[in-house]
Amino acid sequence: MNPLVPQVATILAIREDTPDVRTFTVRPDGEDFPPYRPGQCAMLSLFGVGEAMISITSTWAPETALEFSVKRAGRVTSALHQAEPGHKVGVRGPYGNSFPVDQWVGHDLLFVGGGIGLAPLRSVINHCLGRRAEFGRVDIVYGARSPRDLCFRQELFESWPKVPGASVQVTVDAADAEWEGPVALVPPFLEQLKPDAAGTFAVTCGPPVMIRYTLQALTRLGFPDDRVFTTLELKMQCGVGKCGRCSIGPKYVCIDGPVFSAAELKSLPAEY
């Protein structure tokens, strides 16, 4: 089996989340996609265009399709946004490590997302909510550039807030005429909320600059580096630790990551 040869898969459905984010429901035509863990990624491709590493935003269950929330950014993702249900794509994976969910059992959880960074967090949030009794509080803090850039609205505003012991706080960088919620960047918004660091694991993902300032905010809030996790993305070609592209010091994001603790990140050179 050549790991660079994808399974041919079909786009079953496409949901328009924001002006530049669409969620694709995809199922391989042949064998089922292997079981995957929250935080893992897959190489999604269009034949004739190319591949891109995308986090799997669905949570694995037998015989369910895969979901990928894709922001239109470059060549492959722009072509994906032109695709329609019924079109063929390539998919290979799952790749990378995953969030150490079992380590979090019995603890409170804080998820801090920005923009399309909620896509990998959604997988682990839904996984943890599926095992609700095993965790303490589940607090979700999320922000986007503007109200129309908020992803996963159904979950943000309807399903997650209804889960017992869960909370969702949503902010935007800039409001529009209808927005009545908070207007603030995620890191200062998070600091204002003053989440309790004692016994809590924090998980963050968003644009690189948001991750950087959120990690600093979490440190000021008293979260130790080994209880803070993030998930990184770098340019990838192979996804399987061979092509060299996504190395950070001696680590490859594709196989040693994408999930790193803040403690691990501090031991790596700042090349990400």
């Binding site: 660079l4 034949f47 591949e51 993305e233 592209r245």
Partner: peptide, 28 residues
């Protein structure tokens, strides 16, 4: 890895790359 297309046929190829090239790690 890169794709080339001619009509209804195409090929996904792999080719040497270099960390010295400007777009080596440039992301979309």
């Amino acid at each position: 890895l890169f794709d080339t297309v001619r009509g209804a046929r195409g090929r996904r190829s792999r080719g040497w790359d270099s960390c010295q090239f400007k777009d080596y790690s440039l992301m979309a």
